Measured scan of single mutants.
Amino acid sequence: EEERTFTNEEEARKAKKEAEKRGLRVTVTKDGTTWRVRIG
């Protein structure tokens, strides 16, 4: 499991799409101005 943080919503969405392409489970949460993308 890996967690990545982004300040840019577009980049967070891109990371989510890429992980889904690899067949991984992805959770995206917004924490104030930060987007957290949890993969795995």
Rank of each mutant, 00 (worst) to 15 (best):
E10H: 10
E3D: 08
E2T: 12
N8G: 04
R25T: 10
T7V: 08
A12D: 00
E1C: 15
V28G: 01
R36P: 02
E18I: 06
T5H: 08
E18Y: 07
F6G: 01
K21Y: 09
T27F: 09
E18T: 06
V28L: 14
T29I: 14
R25V: 10
A15V: 08
T7P: 08
E9F: 14
K14M: 12
R25S: 09
T34I: 15
D31S: 08
T7G: 08
E20V: 06
D31K: 06
R22T: 04
E9N: 03
V28P: 00
T33L: 12
E2S: 11
K30N: 10
R4I: 14
I39K: 01
T33R: 07
V28I: 15
T33Q: 13
E3N: 06
V28Q: 01
R38S: 10
A12F: 07
R38H: 10
D31I: 13
W35Q: 02
L24K: 05
V26P: 01
E20F: 04
T34Q: 10
V37A: 01
T5Q: 07
E20P: 01
V28Y: 04
E2F: 14
E18P: 00
V37Y: 01
A15Y: 15
G32N: 04
T29R: 07
R38E: 06
T33E: 15
F6W: 02
A12P: 01
T7H: 09
I39Q: 02
T5Y: 12
K16N: 02
R4K: 10
E11N: 05
E1Q: 10
R4W: 15
W35A: 01
K30V: 09
F6S: 00
A19G: 04
T7F: 11
E18W: 13
K21P: 00
K30P: 04
E9Q: 07
E1H: 11
K21M: 14
V26F: 02
A12W: 04
E20T: 05
K14G: 06
T5G: 03
E20S: 04
A15D: 02
T29F: 13
N8I: 06
G23N: 04
E3S: 08
L24Y: 11
E20Q: 08
K14H: 11
K16I: 15
E20L: 08
T33A: 12
E9I: 10
E10C: 13
T27K: 06
G23S: 03
R36K: 11
K21S: 14
V28F: 06
E11C: 07
T5M: 10
E9M: 07
R38K: 11
E20M: 08
T27I: 10
E18Q: 08
K17W: 14
E20G: 03
E1W: 15
G23R: 03
R36H: 09
K17T: 12
E11L: 05
W35T: 02
E2V: 13
G40L: 15
V26N: 00
I39D: 01
R22W: 08
F6V: 02
R25K: 11
G32K: 03
T27G: 02
E10T: 09
K30Q: 12
I39V: 07
K16T: 10
R22N: 08
K14P: 00
K21D: 13
R36D: 01
K16F: 14
V26W: 02
T7L: 09
K17I: 14
R13M: 15
T5K: 05
E3M: 09
A19P: 01
G23H: 04
T33G: 13
A19E: 02
L24V: 05
G40P: 04
V28W: 04
T34H: 12
G23I: 01
L24R: 05
L24P: 00
A19K: 02
G40Q: 14
K14W: 10
W35K: 02
G32E: 05
E3I: 14
V37M: 07
E2G: 08
V37D: 02
V28H: 00
V37C: 04
V28C: 10
V26Q: 00
D31Q: 08
L24Q: 06
E2Y: 15
E10D: 11
A19W: 11
A12C: 10
R36E: 03
E18G: 04
R13H: 12
R4G: 05
D31A: 06
